[in-house]
Amino acid sequence: MPLPGGTTEMEIVLAILVGLLAASGAYMMMAGRLIAYLFGLIMISNAANIAIFAAGRLTYAEPPLVPDGEYTPMTEVANALPQALILTAIVIGFGLLSFALALVFRTYFELGTTRMDDMREAEPRNMGGNS
């Protein structure tokens, strides 16, 4: 149902949902466990993708294809630009997640812990710091 200003109700709901996803993702990332950190990373990636998608406006319209026999889409089609952005963003986010996962593996292998605050090889406790 379109609202004035070309905004649909679903976009408003998605704006709130994105905030919820980002908040949950951030909280998980700050929780201090590597696995929770990964979960948080995935949620924030999802939030970012939905955010770009909603910012390009939602329509129940056709996918952005040019029908056979036409030169341009005759009817209104979904916004192609954010879709192209998100498509690569998803894959890149996945690459980032894989790399993070590999690092988590390696860290656990080296340090024997997944508690992030116990990882102080680079900055040992006696080097500055107040804790």
């Binding site: 200003g5 994105v18 905030g19 949950s24 951030a26 939030a47």
Partner: peptide
Amino acid sequence: VIAVLFGLAITAAMLAVLGTPL
């Protein structure tokens, strides 16, 4: 608290984006 403020920031930014014409 940080996470909630962060999420609210994102929602607010999204709403501001949706309020401006595409």
